[in-house]
């Protein structure tokens, strides 16, 4: 399944992109993250949360969407 992954803030400097599409055959978000950690070793050291369907989800959550968003700590206002 093709999954679109979006990155924000500091994370865009680790991945050098704002979004990308990855072919992924698993069904748990943490498995997808493992793939990303191989591609971007520095991502592992960064603090971030994962959003799916515009809600934060734990990394153990099932992949229910074909779009996953990685969000660094919020700093609005």
């Amino acid at each position: 399944m093709l999954i679109k992954i979006k990155y924000f803030g500091l994370l865009t400097e680790v991945t050098n992109c704002q979004e990308e599409t990855i072919d992924f055959s698993g069904n748990i978000i943490s498995e997808l993250l493992e793939l990303l950690f191989v591609k971007y070793p520095n991502l592992k050291n960064k603090e971030f949360q994962v959003a799916q369907n515009q809600e934060l989800v734990p990394v153990e959550a099932k992949l229910l969407s074909n779009e996953i968003v990685l969000l660094p700590p919020f700093s609005g206002g």
Partner: peptide
């Protein structure tokens, strides 16, 4: 709210803001 602030310094370098 997922908003991200990039603090730009006078020499054009930057750091990411943390609340």
């Amino acid at each position: 709210v997922p908003v991200f602030g990039k603090e730009i310094f006078e020499d054009n370098s930057h750091q990411w803001k943390v609340n």
